[in-house]
Amino acid sequence: METKAPSTISYPFLVPAEWYSFLENQHLGAFQQETFELYPTIGKGYLQYLEFQKGFWAQQMNFRLQNALPLIQTPSKINDLFIINFYLTSTSIHQKTNKNRFEFNFDNISVMLSSSAAVFHYNIPAKEDVKIFQIGFTREWLLTNAFEEVSSDLKNIFMGNDPIYMAENLDYQFKYLVEEMDLRNANRLFLFSGALQLLNTFFTKLENRQLNTKDLSNIHHTDLESLLQIRTFMDEDPLKAISLDALAQQSGMSLSKFKRYFKQVFGVTPYQYHLQNKLAVAFNRLGQNYSVSEVAFLLGYNNLSHFSKAFKKQYGFLPSEVQKEVS
């Protein structure tokens, strides 16, 4: 039955299969296997998920609505589910919590971690393309697969039941990892590997943020804007050699101030950020069946073992293992 969409939809945070069944009961579309297709009277497009392990999944949404649709995510009493949203289109989606209002799109804040105890008010616009990729996981999966036995600040965040709202920018490393994550076309093993890399990248950023919350200098907004411009410049061509002196001059700061502020804001040194970008390019090229030696040469490595060592330090496995997963 195809009917007009309700004016507002309230729902608890659900795993994809339950979420799709809920949407079907709201007469927004049809749920079959792992895909939810919108009815033509509602819009055009689909939602699709892929569960890699029990409690760990990826989901993509690619749709265009006929009419704007407000959504309200109601809170649960415990944080047993978590989702990381990657907003991949220029369409702005307004997301409001009890305290803050966010505007998400590809060029603004574009990555958001939230939990099942969170309250969200979304406003999905009409007649605009919306593309969102998600990584979802349960607390049980996270504790089993992601954390060591010892306690950590990051682990403590997920063990609590306070609402979680953590936003990040979609930097070059995220963009490269997300770019090939197409549930309809990519290889399952490659998607599984990519989802783990996205999760690891996000957690690394959160850990860097946590580690750098002590003894921070107050950064003037003009210096912050300069740092964001420098990062954009570095993202535009990750394979181009960088000069820290030139970047500092471009930012209008002294070299020592530039390096100190850069690490404070982004959690890594300028050189480490540049290396992460280069290795993200390598990961992407390996997924496109470039040989390890071709990728090493592309990144400027004369010694193949040095490239393999740097790649494994970044991702936890050798570049040759990426090729095995996509072959």
Rank of each mutant, 00 (worst) to 15 (best):
L275Q: 15
Q323R: 14
E103R: 13
F262M: 03
E168Q: 15
E128V: 05
N123R: 07
F283S: 03
S92L: 07
A146K: 02
P16W: 06
G267V: 08
A30G: 01
N208D: 07
E149L: 12
V111C: 11
W57T: 01
Q197K: 04
I230M: 09
I135C: 11
G160F: 07
Q250I: 04
L275R: 13
P40W: 05
R285W: 01
N185T: 13
L47V: 00
L81M: 07
P319K: 03
F266K: 02
T74L: 15
R184G: 08
L183T: 07
Y176T: 08
K175T: 02
F36D: 05
L224S: 15
L275T: 11
K263R: 15
R139S: 05
M61V: 08
Q48W: 08
G316Q: 08
M166T: 04
V295Y: 00
M61W: 09
F63S: 02
Y165P: 01
F233D: 10
N169Q: 12
F307N: 00
L28C: 06
G55T: 09
I157G: 05
R260F: 12
L142Y: 07
N100H: 13
V15M: 13
F104M: 13
T74C: 09
K324P: 00
F317T: 01
E34A: 11
Q26Y: 02
E294V: 02
T144E: 12
I219T: 12
N123Q: 13
S291A: 11
S308A: 15
